[in-house]
Design a binder for these strands. Sequence first.
DNA 1: CGGCTTATCCCTTAAAAACAGGATATTTTT
DNA 2: AAAAATATCCTGTTTTTAAGGGATAAGCCG
Lengths: 206, 206
Amino acid sequence: MAIKLFIVDDHFMVIEGIHSLLQNENDIEWMGHAGNAASCLAFLHQQKPDVILMDVNLPDKSGIDLCKEVKERYPGIFIVGLSTYNQQSFIEKMMSNGASGYVIKNATQQELMEAIHTVVKGKQFLSFDAAVALRKPDTGHGMPVITRREKEVLELIADGMTNNEIAGKLFISSTTVDTHRKNLLTKFEAKNTASLIRIAAQLKII
Amino acid sequence: MAIKLFIVDDHFMVIEGIHSLLQNENDIEWMGHAGNAASCLAFLHQQKPDVILMDVNLPDKSGIDLCKEVKERYPGIFIVGLSTYNQQSFIEKMMSNGASGYVIKNATQQELMEAIHTVVKGKQFLSFDAAVALRKPDTGHGMPVITRREKEVLELIADGMTNNEIAGKLFISSTTVDTHRKNLLTKFEAKNTASLIRIAAQLKII
DNA sequence: CGGCTTATCCCTTAAAAACAGGATATTTTT
DNA sequence: AAAAATATCCTGTTTTTAAGGGATAAGCCG
């Protein structure tokens, strides 16, 4: 029986690329694609693929969150993370949110096929680059784990808002904002706001 | 005569996607692809395409630098920037380094074809998303002209140093550092240090 | 030369942020 | 159900920054 495959990626060219790579594979049934998390969930409401190739970065929500959501609702579907970067932290998060595999976008056709065939059997698959990224000891400059609220505050700080303005916007006390700020500085090992924003910008968090 | 096309992108799937999109176009001659800047330059040593689709992010050097280099050596080749993100700073830099067009990776086949046909005539082409990104934040996305000293100070601020530390490092008074800081805030139209660093980071100045 | 830019220096004051302690309630995970 | 993480709030003190005002010397360019 052919493996039913669905793709979530907001880049038309990537979808086209994967489609092209797989069109001659007899045991893959191309079910279609979604450009964002919402239409992916809408599709899954109607139909159930065996494997989803899921981009880590989506316009409406992160693939990491979507992965968790899909796995909770449809544990039978296997998910392969797909990313431009072999960021260790992304890989780790995807896998711990229920993904069965992870493939970098410069993977070869062979790797992609191997990934699909491996995860559909319930096993895990990491593409070569992803496995290398995971193995190398954390260089310390890994992305800190920050909470949703902390990220919100971080973005508002980067927008140049003061603690009081942020407090007003989020309907919380300014002392709370200050605490989040304190925690952000600790987590990013930043000395002050300036270095915090720089580090966050370099990690593409803002 | 068919338009000779070459692609520089480190993502196999994107190359495959573009190849697939263009394989039925009779007036496009697919010359091949390079996965990094070095092999692109090596290829150009041998052959001369009419148009190059060039990813902004390459493993060995930025597409922005490569664009400049290629245009200096081969002014007759037209370059279309290619990127995952519609970052206005990227678009601006590519265009000012000699690119004739800019296309986001989620562009449609129509947009891509239009881009190639437009630039080969010597005209400019911006994909819809890129044009929107360029026009939207009209309020100060042009890169400010800063002096050497100001850039020095900016970098030290981003490193998390205080005015006094910077003063000590540069052998100047801390009030001077403060003045530079003041001027930076004015030039970047930033409200405070946080937004200053964010803007500078996004413009790749730090 | 004369005007312009740059780099340097100084003052004041109010606001903001950093820092150092703490506490409590709600989720989430185990 | 217990433990851990998260989000919320508090009271202080000290340091830093923002933003306003000005001033002088050196170098560059037409």
